[in-house]
């Protein structure tokens, strides 16, 4: 987000201004605390022992830092009846995310290109129909999808989950790329046509290299969405093939045995780390993904 060109406006100085600035920063700091405290609590709890949790408070920092909870969350916490920790489920998520993100992004780009730069008859109607798919509550397709996966022999498998994410991610990715390509001059495509480039030639050699920012935004958006998904994971996978979000929920919500809050927190951080890392590394692209389609201009 660009900075204002109005920073230089001469303003009245004096104590009142200073007070206003003070209040402004106080409010901003307060909200920083509001957003950060849960993260701090999560991290500090994950480094405490269970005894310390029982004796201390939420906000106290760990007295004796221990990695036990992390080790347990990663390798030996019980998810349902299986006690291998989150590790296998993290791999499940990775196996699911990579193909689903790549497929949905590539197909979204291709379709967005075909729909905007080759405006054949009915392209707008097709786009509107596809777009609608981005907004439906997925509850409405859960039952038939479960049956379809069963028929295809993909029920409870990771490939099945990849398919589901790709299909329902397509509406989003097509929307992203359409919005991006609309800003690309039609003249470029015409010029390439006159130069003799074909439909795919133009796509691969001219359009895709131009759309790097849109590709990054879409990859990040899709990655965040699919990694964080819970509904499809819980509805279409069972036990062994659960993605990490479902496994985390199972760890946290097991009713048997002693409640290990430190393990819960470590597990939550493990599940959150990949998307948090992407956010920290590519924050501006993430923000662009969030506001794509919502704010014009």
């Amino acid at each position: 987000m660009n900075r204002r060109q109005i920073d230089g406006i001469v303003r009245r100085g004096g104590p009142w201004q200073a007070v206003q600035r003070g209040v402004l920063f106080a409010v901003l700091a307060l909200f920083c605390a509001y957003y950060l405290v849960p993260l701090v609590v999560m991290i500090s709890t994950s480094f405490k022992s269970l005894d310390e949790i029982r004796l201390g408070t939420l906000t106290s920092l760990p007295q004796a830092v221990t990695f036990e909870a992390w080790a347990k969350a990663w390798g030996s916490a019980c998810v349902g009846v299986r006690c291998d920790g989150l590790q296998p489920y993290v791999w499940n998520s990775v196996m699911m995310v990579v193909p689903a993100v790549a497929l949905s992004t590539f197909l979204g780009a291709l379709n967005g290109y075909a729909l905007t730069k080759w405006r054949f008859r009915g392209a707008d109607v097709i786009f509107a129909l596809i777009l609608f798919g981005a907004f439906i509550p997925f509850q409405v397709i859960l039952l038939p999808m479960a049956r379809t996966l069963g028929v295809l022999g993909l029920a409870g498998t990771i490939p099945g989950l990849i398919m589901v994410h790709t299909i329902y991610g397509l509406a989003f990715t097509t929307l992203f790329f359409r919005n991006f390509f609309i800003g690309v001059s039609d003249g470029i495509v015409r010029a390439a046509q006159v130069d003799g480039a074909s439909f795919f030639g133009i796509f691969f050699r001219i359009i895709l290299p131009m759309s790097l920012p849109a590709i990054v935004v879409t990859l990040i958006w899709q990655f965040t969405q699919i990694w964080n998904d819970f509904l499809f994971g819980v509805a279409f996978t069972v036990g062994e093939s659960n993605p990490v979000t479902v496994a985390l929920n199972n760890v946290v919500n097991t009713s048997t045995g002693v409640k290990e809050y430190n393990v819960d927190m470590a597990a939550a951080i493990i599940a959150a780390l990949p998307t948090l890392a992407v956010y920290v590394l590519a924050g501006s692209y993430f923000v662009r993904g969030l506001s794509a389609g919502a704010v014009k201009g």
């Binding site: 987000m1 901003l28 909200f31 920083c32 957003y35 950060l36 849960p38 993260l39 609590v41 999560m42 709890t45 939420l58 965040t224 990694w227 964080n228 998904d229 819970f230 979000t245 985390l248 929920n249 946290v252 809050y261 819960d264 927190m265 597990a267 939550a268 599940a271 959150a272 998307t275 948090l276 992407v278 956010y279 920290v280 924050g283 993430f286 923000v287 969030l290």
Partner: peptide
Amino acid sequence: AIRTIYLYPMALSFIVTGTVWKWI
């Protein structure tokens, strides 16, 4: 920096958010 702090929860899974707040 402030914007980054305000927005990071959006990168989390609701499951993670739920877990943390359940504890808090």
